[in-house]
């Protein structure tokens, strides 16, 4: 009897020790993963940055950022047209996509009956699952011929077409984040406003939207980050030529599209290859900056 008791006690003890070991191993495992992730992230930034900054051995920063003369075989590395292309395309996408997303969010959060909400919400999330090459292909086969036939454009390639397709790609992001933000506005605020005699529209404009503003801004900035980094769909629609666009319907290029078009045939380590890395680095910095903005706004939301 006592012997048996003893074995169970030792069993229990070793079981306990084993659990402690698993606990510790688990904790270390998780730490290892997060360390690995951080190392990976910083190595990417370091590698892209170092390779990119080597460009300045051959090109002056002023030429790179402010000249639009991109003739790598003749030693001219002016990336201004790509920078302008990236920024303008993103701007068009946001100008078209953000109001659309916001309107959708208001409808979804405040107007839609539950049955429609049930269909609409997952439908919006599904947009994110559509690969960007599909968007690009749709733009190539539907949007471009439409623009050619209706606006009399020679080709339709340019900032406008890329911006329109990007707007469709990013409005779900704006929509879902804004809808969440509007949902999260405490209902006593709105009820108070209605009780004071404000109409639904007045309540929306003066109470709900200002209260949800940090969340909506976060959505728009995340959408911008996606738009500025989007490659495939833009590359298919922008025309990819290094000229400074003077109209929205003229082919030009963005940072992403020029990297993807030229990197395959560009010798690694040459000034040309390095300048593509520098463009990637500029993109990276731009995205990091946008993400920091997002953190800034969500911090404000928590404080409020």
């Amino acid at each position: 009897m006592t012997g048996r008791n003893n074995t169970t006690r030792t069993d229990a003890k070793s079981w306990h020790r084993r659990q402690l070991f698993f606990d510790k191993a688990g904790a270390y495992g998780v730490i290892a993963c997060s360390v690995l992730m951080t190392i990976l992230l910083f190595s990417i930034i370091f590698f892209v940055g170092r390779q990119g900054l080597l460009t300045f051995q051959a090109v002056s920063p002023i030429d790179f950022f402010f000249s639009a003369k991109w003739e790598p075989t003749a030693g001219a590395f002016g990336a201004a047209s790509f920078l302008a292309g990236s920024l303008l395309t993103t701007l068009v996408a946001i100008l078209l996509g953000a109001p659309l997303g916001l309107a959708g969010a208001i409808y979804l959060a405040q107007v839609a009956p539950p049955a429609i909400k049930k269909i609409l919400r997952p439908a919006v999330d599904l947009y994110v699952a559509i690969p960007s090459v599909v968007y690009g292909y749709m733009g190539l086969t539907l949007l471009l011929p439409f623009l050619r036939d209706n606006l009399g454009l020679p080709s339709g390639f340019g900032i406008f077409s890329a911006g329109v397709v990007l707007a469709i790609m990013i409005f779900p992001t704006v929509l879902s984040l804004s809808a969440d933000a509007i949902h999260a506005v405490p209902s006593p605020l709105e009820e108070g406003s209605i009780a004071l005699g404000a109409t639904w529209w007045q309540t929306l404009r003066h109470i709900t939207l200002p209260a949800a503003a940090p969340g909506i801004t976060t959505g728009i900035i995340l959408a911008m980050a996606r738009a500025v980094g989007e490659t495939m769909a833009v590359e298919m629609l922008i025309g990819n030529t290094p000229q400074l666009a003077t109209s929205l319907f003229q082919p030009t290029a963005t940072l992403t599209s020029n990297i993807v078009v030229e990197m395959g045939n560009t010798p690694f380590g040459s000034a040309w290859g390095n300048s593509l890395f520098l463009m990637a680095f500029v993109l990276l910095i731009l995205s990091l900056f946008l993400i920091l903005l997002v953190r800034h706004f969500s911090a404000r939301k928590e404080a409020a």
Binding site: T241, P251, V261
Partner: peptide, 8 residues
């Protein structure tokens, strides 16, 4: 000319 459309 750079006034062209580039495909990869």
């Amino acid at each position: 000319t750079d006034d062209a459309i580039i495909q990869d």
